[in-house]
Design a binder for these strands. Sequence first.
DNA 1: CTATATGCAAAAAGTTTGCATCTCC
DNA 2: GGAGATGCAAACTTTTTGCATATAG
Lengths: 128, 128
Amino acid sequence: MTTTRRNAVREALASCEGFRSAQDIYADLRADGSKIGLTTVYRALQALSDSGEVDVLRTADGEAVYRACRSEEHHHHLVCRACGRTVEVEGPAVESWADAIATEHGFVNITHTVEVFGTCAGCARAAG
Amino acid sequence: MTTTRRNAVREALASCEGFRSAQDIYADLRADGSKIGLTTVYRALQALSDSGEVDVLRTADGEAVYRACRSEEHHHHLVCRACGRTVEVEGPAVESWADAIATEHGFVNITHTVEVFGTCAGCARAAG
DNA sequence: CTATATGCAAAAAGTTTGCATCTCC
DNA sequence: GGAGATGCAAACTTTTTGCATATAG
């Protein structure tokens, strides 16, 4: 099958809005009746991120969280800190800013990470 | 003393250019003859980051790295991936971009993280 | 003397690896 | 039968906690 389990992981990821940790996905899959092992979840996630199918980033407390990305292109994320809902956004302004300041300081071979956190409309309303 | 060791940590951080992990600082201090313990380094780092004296961020492999910041104001970092040298940069363009796209998507209470990585002039030359 | 700081060792938490088993071809 | 996929348990890494000792005031 080559990717039976990997597909389960991919789907678990695809069926949710925001970022999920490996442990979350594992719990989801198990709760769903799957007999998948934590190891396999990690391995699937590694494979998926290697092939660029999912995005990985770290939470403030060191947990790795993953997300299935819609687009293959370079983009950033706008994440609701309350519900985890994620919006993929493009930031040409950021790209050029990063390039500019890097060049200005003599840096080459630039890469950057940009994550924006906030409370989405729904959660803001719910929270008052 | 209240902060004898904490000061050692603060200084270790102040005397270097880039981000350092707790383990790095611990190693530095020990190499320097200090009898400080890893635990204390972590506790000092926590205290320092609580009081806003140092910046914390995570490397891709989940290690927390710390840095003594010059300015108290909001700023971002341009880090050399070869030598670790760090430049603090301001990004008004990024701030407004983040605000704009967040607002556009109905998000409020925005915060963001931006880190730019590259190879500095010196390292680029050294590397060819 | 009392409160805080410190250090060592053990405990957690998350992630990875070793190894035997199972499935597909 | 052979290669890759899978699961369990053990190993690892980083960070935190428990507890006894040392130090400041």
